[in-house]
């Protein structure tokens, strides 16, 4: 078989990674952008999303789609609630001081991870996808000088993977609409631009912070619910999304949502393609190298605003 079909398959796998990564990274970017704090526990909110998705789908019998739909709605809200509680009880008390917040969120990371180990256990557990039809993919070949479609053996994806990409796209449009078109989005952007002036114009900054922290964690959890039918839930699964999200957020520009989404697509796709043709390790090496180059030559990220 020629290289084209492989490339298409690798791009599709990469697109799934990119979709989930974009959601997770946008959550991290939102928290950094508005609150100016680095949330090291972000990956654990992702893991919590996957584990809770397993728990919720287990509680509800019947068709897998029913349990999954419940998980899709309930889990992000649950995780957002946990994040809001962590914000109000911990981050607010240390006044969102950047250094102390890093240490505090490392603490939150271990608490969430170990509590999950003690309750959920060390096993990796699958979640049944709500729908999972195998879709054979066509490729074009030239026979007798005319293009013709054919279905190479093994070239396929599943309807669920396409569903993940579509759902992530939909959620990202929703986040954009929230930020650009709603009253609460306006307050969030004003807080991001100038915290003191936001206070001087009556914006309840602490409540905005709690909300943003909740939305950020909820997005990570939502990404995890989407990926868990493909990847399985495990208490240590938060590490990779955290690292990749940081890579994406740094490349895209801290606090820039369009930059974050674009960088997620770039990293996700290249990760998929390089993993298929070379090795997953090379993909991580190249992504990390790209971060180093961005930090050296364009520290504000590809789309970040220069500090004024």
């Amino acid at each position: 078989m020629e290289i084209g079909p492989y490339l298409m398959l690798a791009s599709l796998e990469g697109a799934v990674t990119a979709a989930v990564l974009a959601l997770t990274a946008v959550g991290l970017s939102l928290v950094f952008g508005v609150m100016r704090v680095v949330n090291v526990a972000h990956g654990e909110f992702f893991m919590l999303g996957a584990v809770l998705a397993w728990w919720v789908t287990g509680l509800i019998g019947g068709h897998p789609a029913l349990g999954f739909a419940m998980a899709l709605v309930l889990v992000p809200v649950l995780v957002a609630g946990i994040a809001v509680a962590a914000d109000m009880t911990i981050l607010k008390r240390i006044a969102y001081d950047p250094e102390r917040t890093i240490v505090a969120t490392i603490g939150i990371l271990y608490i969430i991870q170990q509590v999950t180990l003690m309750t959920y256990g060390p096993e990796a557990r699958p979640v049944t996808p709500p729908f999972n039809t195998r879709l054979a993919l066509p490729w074009v070949e030239f026979a007798d000088g005319a293009p013709r479609l054919y279905w190479p053996w093994g070239l396929s994806t599943t309807s669920y993977k396409l569903g993940v990409i579509a759902a992530a796209g939909g959620v990202l449009v929703g986040v954009w609409a929230l930020m650009a078109r709603t009253r609460i989005g306006l307050l969030m952007r004003a807080t991001q631009l100038d915290r003191d002036m936001a206070l001087a114009f009556g914006i309840p900054v602490e409540r905005v912070y709690a909300l943003v922290f909740g939305i950020g964690a909820g997005l990570a959890a939502l990404a995890a619910v989407l990926i868990v039918p493909i990847q399985q839930a495990h208490y240590l699964m938060g590490g990779d999304p955290l690292l990749l999200s940081f890579i994406v957020v740094i490349i895209g520009g801290l606090g820039s949502l369009p930059g974050t989404v674009l960088a997620a697509v770039l990293i996700g796709l290249s990760d998929g393609i390089i993993s298929v043709f070379f090795s997953p390790t090379l993909a991580k090496i190249l992504a990390t190298l790209l971060v180093a180059l961005v930090l050296v030559f364009r520290p504000q990220g590809l789309f970040g605003a220069r500090p004024r």
Binding site: A190, L193, M197, L199, A200, G202, V205
Partner: peptide, 26 residues
């Protein structure tokens, strides 16, 4: 602090401190 302006205190800070990326309307 966020309840002070609602009492009726308008603040025009030094250096203007507008929300630069937002429009005049916003």
């Amino acid at each position: 602090a966020h309840k002070v302006p609602a009492v009726g205190v308008g603040y025009v800070p030094q250096g203007r401190r507008l929300f630069g990326e937002l429009t005049v309307a916003q």
